[in-house]
Design a binder for these strands. Structure first.
Lengths: 345, 345
DNA sequence: CGGTCAGATGATATCGATAACAGTTTCCAG
DNA sequence: CTGGAAACTGTTATCGATATCATCTGACCG
């Protein structure tokens, strides 16, 4: 193999095509005034040399990097993956590149990521949730590009928001349970100190129980989030030991709901006859499980799509001064067999 | 709000600290000869101004962008998510940033992504699988940075490989089925023309059946990959209509296996007494399902970890000339209740 | 006490593109 | 024909950092 053959630059292309570098730069972009003859001559030259534009240099010069930075809590989570898909699908048209990082539900890690990302001079930054370290919040406030918080409704938004009320979502489930006649209702979630969205659901759950005048003691806190199917099953065992009289159970996510449900089935309990189960997130799994699991749909993919559109607006139109700051999603209950009384089916 | 306050640059920091920009540059990197006094003075100045390094400029100048480009078929796939996690965990220490793109199992989209990525001047590029368009392959060969193909064992590798034989993995399952006494064995996968890994599994499956002298007709090809739980269920219905005598079924992934299994259960068939089921990928779901599903573990996370280590070697040590090119992973069968005769349990 | 050398700092020249403006050609209305 | 707008192309000056080499201290040694 030869010495590093050194990638050709725009100057090389310009020489070969017999034009100036500036013309090459223009020829390789759409919507620029370059004659068709010149443009194709330049394209040919670029092809011949195997030229590939250097967006690092382009970004430095034009001050537009084409990066959108995004932090999500976890990559192994169908909900956030859906959000990401919605986001990239919309952004693809604009040739924006997502810089993705995951925080593992840790605000310190989020701070680290945000700092890394800001060095890349993204044109916008999207973070999940409202909980940030002080320093992280300060960086976001001062970074000079649009900031979006998603999957939550922060009390003090940094910039734009695309999210929903986790508490309200939990209330939907409680109301549904109560409507079905269940009274002894429990909750399984992760360690409240880390996953703020899970924590908000827990609070909303408790508030809703209290509003109905129901007992709020049936709570299990598992390990650090995200809690898995296995931890759902384990928590279910604890729940059944401690409160064998439980009639209905809400889990912080569909995964733990599935784990809890299979544990019940292993113990010979029938769903929903012996225990009703509800999850969160509208995973495929909840629909395909036997029986299908009642869940809350927050249209994860839509969150991503809307966030992308917000960014496009903010970046393109100059005038549209912060048209709207809060883009609120309405969680929807999907009532399924896992919580429906026979008479209702 | 004021005019865009303009982010401070290294020059601003240098002025405030009373040193030259070059010294600031050095002070902000570890392992550089700057006196402790100067360094802390500079740190203070940087903090005061809220200075954030511009890695775009740094990358242009140093010709080290810190990017590792990675393409995977799908983001909504626990296996690839695991690979990604392994990758980033190892890379975190080196301060490398992953540029992630997903191809939707489409080589044309892969080509588009690779081209986009090469513009960012990544220091290495990782692609999933061995199937590429001609142009994409050419770009990868000529890009001048290490290329890794993963999740496969290409016949003509472009550079390094971290993968396993999908055919061999499928053979493991067939051998297991045969060992358990099953003879009428079927396969459910996606449209063979797109997902090459799924296709390789299908071929390996057929070859193994033939090696055992068994009938190879029980094949269902579903929609374009990735095939979901729902499509697994739908394919199972077709399978049962066409070949009601089927004794054992392998699915191209655990998700479709779960869908197929629940469909059987809905139809009143018992697993494994009436039909044995095997999946692929060692998803959590396969372990938690009722009954747990036999599957193939290819240690997805390990693939990512190894790929990251290969990159670290290639980038750090100058001498270690392409030490090894193929890093082969051994798929492992995880035999579970969904395919175990009662006597074996 | 002169010489050598490592450590600390600075000056200068890029890295590869694009912005902004300047110049040239084309083309057509008047 | 001619003025002038529109279309095309070129020149120059950055963008914000780092590589490289030069310079300047002192410390240490025989």
């Amino acid at each position: 193999m030869t010495k590093n053959p050194k990638q050709p630059t725009m100057i090389d292309v310009a020489h070969l095509a017999g034009v100036s570098p500036m013309t090459v730069s223009r020829a390789l972009k759409p919507n620029t005034s370059v004659s068709e003859a010149t443009r194709s001559k330049i394209r040919a030259a670029a092809d011949e040399l195997g030229y590939v534009l250097d967006s690092t240099a382009a970004g430095l010069s034009s001050r537009r990097t084409g990066f959108i930075a995004v932090t999500i809590p976890s990559i192994n989570n169908a909900n956030f993956a859906d959000t990401l898909r919605g986001l990239t699908q919309v952004l693809r048209a604009t040739n924006m590149q997502v810089l993705l990082g995951y925080t593992d539900y840790d605000v310190a890690e989020e701070e680290r990521l945000v700092e890394q990302f800001l060095r890349r001079r993204p044109e916008a930054i999207i973070v999940t949730g409202h909980a940030h370290t002080d320093r992280c919040r300060r960086m976001l406030e001062k970074c000079g590009v649009p900031v979006i918080e998603m999957w939550d409704l922060p009390e003090n938004p940094i910039g734009q928001v695309v999210g929903f009320s986790n508490a309200q979502a939990a209330k939907l489930m409680v109301d549904h349970f109560v409507g079905q006649g269940y009274r002894k209702i429990g909750f399984i979630g992760g360690d409240p100190s880390r996953d703020t969205r899970g924590q908000d659901r827990r609070q909303g759950f408790l508030a809703a129980l209290e509003a109905h005048g129901l007992d709020t003691s049936r709570m299990i806190a598992a390990q650090r989030p995200p809690i898995t199917m296995r931890e759902g099953a384990h928590s279910m065992r604890l729940m059944l030991e401690k409160w064998p009289d439980i009639e209905a159970l809400m889990c912080v996510s569909d995964l733990s709901a599935f784990g809890a449900m299979t544990e019940c089935q292993r113990q010979g309990l029938r769903i929903p006859d012996d225990i009703a189960i509800g999850g969160f997130g509208a995973y495929d799994l909840a629909e395909q499980a036997l029986p299908p699991i009642t869940t809350i749909d927050v249209s994860s993919e839509n969150i991503g799509r809307i966030a992308a559109q917000v960014i496009q607006n903010l970046l393109s139109s100059e005038a549209t001064k912060t048209s709207e700051t809060i883009h609120r999603i309405e969680p929807k209950l999907l009532a399924r067999d896992s919580s429906l009384r026979h008479t209702e089916r």
